[in-house]
């Protein structure tokens, strides 16, 4: 086969806009997921893995949103149900229910925690200029969890702050 002809078939960024193919672009990538009908996203570099829901081992006297701990390749990982933590939607465990395991490394420590969400949806590219500050009009989710909003088509995706998510506040345990 003619090499020249083959080379011309390789898509070049900008020339084609193929749905479903992610070119490496300048912006940050985010993993989006669904809680009830709302869309949320976290920095994709923090995502360790996405697991299907399995019943975790309960932690005694833990708050309701801490579902328990699971074994992720020999590491004990706590699982937090974001729907309960944020009070969004119905809490049901079905086929699409997944656990997104996030690792956040700071100087002080590195923590790995799994978060139960209704479904994962997509990978989102967003440049910094596209991220808008969230309006301070209430909402159930405390302000410090939200990094900003990104418009995607008609909808809005809320960027969550992984560092804030990883903090287990003492008052959460009762």
């Amino acid at each position: 086969m003619d090499i020249q002809a083959l080379a011309q078939e390789i898509p070049v960024e900008g020339e084609y806009s193929l749905e479903g193919i992610d070119f490496i672009t300048n912006g940050e990538q985010y993993l989006t997921f669904v809680l009830d009908t709302e869309h949320y996203a976290v920095d994709i570099l923090c995502v360790e893995e996405i697991r299907s829901w399995e019943k975790p081992t309960k932690i005694p006297n833990a708050p309701t949103h801490v579902k328990g701990v699971i074994n992720m390749r020999g590491v004990i990982v706590p699982v937090i149900d974001l729907r309960i933590k944020f009070g969004i939607g119905e809490v049901a465990y079905c086929k699409t229910t997944v656990v997104i395991v996030l690792t956040y490394e700071s100087d002080a420590q590195s923590r790995t925690i799994g978060f139960v969400v209704d479904a994962v949806s997509d990978v989102l590219n967003a440049e910094e200029s596209e991220i808008k500050a969230a309006p301070a009009f209430g909402g159930i989710i405390p302000h410090h969890y939200v990094n900003g909003l990104v418009n995607v088509g008609e909808g809005v995706v809320t960027l969550l702050d992984v560092e804030a998510l990883q903090q287990i506040e003492p008052h959460e345990v009762g």
């Binding site: 932690i59 706590p78 925690i113």
Partner: peptide
């Protein structure tokens, strides 16, 4: 448990 969570 402390690594990823806290003492219980």
């Amino acid at each position: 448990l402390k690594d990823n969570y806290q003492d219980v």
